[in-house]
Nucleic acid binder design. Sequence first.
DNA 1: CGCCGAGTTGAACTGAATCAAGAAACGTGG
DNA 2: CCACGTTTCTTGATTCAGTTCAACTCGGCG
Lengths: 194, 194
Amino acid sequence: MNPDYLARLQRYMNGIIGQKPEQWEPFISAFEYAEYPKKSFLIREGEVENYLYFILEGGTSSFFVNEGREKCLDLWFADHFVSSYMSFLTRKPSQIFIQALFPTKTLRIPHQVLQELYARRDESNKVGRLLAEGLYIARTQREIQFLSQTAEERYLDLMRKQPALIQQLPVKTVASYLGIHPESLSRIRKQVMP
Amino acid sequence: MNPDYLARLQRYMNGIIGQKPEQWEPFISAFEYAEYPKKSFLIREGEVENYLYFILEGGTSSFFVNEGREKCLDLWFADHFVSSYMSFLTRKPSQIFIQALFPTKTLRIPHQVLQELYARRDESNKVGRLLAEGLYIARTQREIQFLSQTAEERYLDLMRKQPALIQQLPVKTVASYLGIHPESLSRIRKQVMP
DNA sequence: CGCCGAGTTGAACTGAATCAAGAAACGTGG
DNA sequence: CCACGTTTCTTGATTCAGTTCAACTCGGCG
């Protein structure tokens, strides 16, 4: 494993919990390296999520399948955590798939190891707290956006905030992320372009 | 204040973090009692959320207003925590209102006090972690439901899981919670009833 | 009594889904 | 490196869930 990888995670931890290495050091050393080829799954529906992943390179889509259609919950890229977090927390089968959108390199921590850390070192709960808080905020922002904007507005927003993302991902992935079908995104693009 | 109220919070904490009073005792004693008349606001859009509330009696609606329409994010009742949690965490103005649906009694903890607790007692982060995790799960479940069910399915689901709620709340509140307009709920009820 | 907000009903409208068909891009194996 | 089959993308025609706007009813309350 590239030694720079742990440094990446350290830098991220520094950013969210501050300059107290003793708080995140045991946390960081509990991670293991794992790679996922493009289109492979970090987890499938029905499995119990055993890992929390920190993305080093690449990106993932979290989605569930309803009546044969993929419904994307979120996309995550380098320097973010991803997991079927509900399954990870509840130890129940995952309702979602997480799939690598590109060849993806991660550091991951097993559930068991994290739980032991929480139990053994009170201060490690701070990491877990900040993690859950961050995920909560992301979820809530997205829900507010879905309730207040049309598909076209969400698309324009995405173009403004993450233009690279629209270039790199297939239309069907972007459409699913926007909560619409590929045909609709196709029309929106035609509408918006000229 | 009714002394039973602290016991209520204690029982709840016991349920989520287990039988270690020393973990939640300093937490619980930091709460103060507060009442909200029906239709009053725990917080309004634009204000920074200063409290995390534990509901003793009554209930609340969390909503934002978009183009003059109320969009409900969640409803909470006795023995649950509520807050404009995104504002509480980020210290930025709240995007949402929280309004008492009935005369509502709460125990609330000020942001500052909770932060000091987090900083001074590592183990109190566990409470914060479990709280954020629980809120994350609720948000995610709701998002999955919105992406996979029609309004009628969501209504039938609510009837099955929370029939009392439909009785006690005005149609417009239930409609907003279901993500539709009162007219639409009216039609769905007619459709479903006979 | 009369008002006023809450709920219902109707008719027209709209954003997005659905179904179908064709064109373009992709990747896989020969 | 090309050929072939499979996805992916686009476009069109149609349908549908839910909105919008407007009118009307009902029940409580000053």
